[in-house]
Design a protein around this nucleic acid. Structure first.
Lengths: 219, 219
DNA sequence: CTTCAAAGTTAGACATATCTAACTTTATTT
DNA sequence: AAATAAAGTTAGATATGTCTAACTTTGAAG
């Protein structure tokens, strides 16, 4: 049985290994805000349970079982977020922190009922895919708004960061998932992007904002 | 901050001290299913935090702060039970175990929203009172069905034990809160009670069943 | 191809929550 | 009042998750 601390290590390993597939001890330690010896010990325990592969001085890799265990925690997290949003009426900027606690509830019944009530949803309130009971999730091929190189129309599909502050910023600007953004200009020197949408004539987004928004180009 | 383990000790202390106001180390150890030295250590920690009063070789007593801390955990538990029952559609026999996990969620926002959605309820699905945010709860003056001495009509108001097995038994017999029971006879030698209600002509309840049902006499 | 900083490991420590075995105190029983 | 069982305490051990300080390995730069 993974303790909730081990579940958090698994989640961190999952997200950190998205790019290269492997994770360094130091990276994991930074993500979990613990020292290197702590990570080192924990990685041994995770390896003993078959969730990671690790050889001395080598980077860490999640095993298929580790990936599945991580996905099932992420499933609980994202189902919780959607439940908080849809059933309990929380704002999308409030759900992450509460879901961070709910994801460690062990009762399978609880999440099964949630899943049913929400009609087996595939996306959470931030547009992230919800893994199914087997730990599989869809992998939409969105692009980061910051990667768009020429003016076009895009639809906002997902938010890369579910931190409260950033979501509050989006609320202020009336930016919700599904909204259509018309890109009017791209400043190549600082990467800022001007968009218009809804009742907003022009919003200039810095690169640090546009790099957190997943979009889909409208043909 | 009480860890979830300390919260469980506080709950146990609350329930065990209902009768006499004090609790022995041994009683608490039995309730928590831990050894006496473990209880002894924990009691020192609880005392250090001001939740219990304890002198060597003397019984343990919750302080007012301890009582309040316990009541706030019980509040989270009972709110969760009602939420699971009313909003999520669980049966009253399913909610206890899930609420046992939910009660340790720290987010105040979560329980505040629950409270609002449920319209500030005063009783959980088993008829137990829900403490308010200050830790105060109503104390209804019900009687145990097993204490009734002469045939009369009573209304089932609360269940003393929220264990799954007992509640499933009540489900089978179609016994719900609010139902009116006509007591037709009382066997003084074994304490069994015959009742009729709803579509049931006669049900003979053993003392062990009737001593778990809180009722109110109908005038 | 040596040097050296970054990455990783080891050793030893601490806090929490638990245990068993042995000892002390309290209170009841004769 | 002495004996004794029950209740409570102490001592010493274990598991988990964490730390700092010191040491080793790896790999990149000169």
């Amino acid at each position: 049985m993974p303790t909730s601390i081990k579940e958090n290590y698994l989640k961190a390993l999952h997200f950190l290994s998205l790019q290269s597939g492997v994770v360094s001890l130091t990276e994991l330690g930074n993500a979990m805000e613990v020292s290197k010896p702590t990570v080192n010990d924990m990685v041994k325990k995770l390896a003993a349970r078959g969730w990671v592969r690790h050889e001395r001085y080598q980077p860490i890799q999640l095993t298929p079982e580790g990936h599945k265990a991580a996905a099932l925690v992420i499933r609980k997290h994202r189902l919780s977020e959607l439940f908080l949003y849809q059933v309990m009426g929380f704002g999308w900027e409030e759900v992450h922190d509460i879901a961070e606690e709910m994801e460690h509830i062990k009762s399978e019944l609880f999440f099964q009922r949630m899943d049913e009530l929400l009609r087996f949803p595939v996306f959470d309130p931030h547009g992230s895919p919800i893994p199914d009971k087997a730990g599989n999730m869809v992998t939409p091929s969105y692009q980061l708004l910051s990667h768009i190189t020429s003016p076009c129309c895009v639809v906002l599909k997902a938010i890369r960061n579910s931190g409260t502050e950033f979501l509050k910023y989006l609320n202020e600007k009336n930016l919700q998932l599904g909204i259509e953004l018309k890109i009017t200009s791209i400043e190549s020197f600082d990467g800022s992007i001007s968009v218009s949408y809804g009742h907003c004539e022009q919003l200039v987004m810095s690169h640090s904002v546009s790099s957190l928004l997943w979009v889909e180009v409208v043909e």
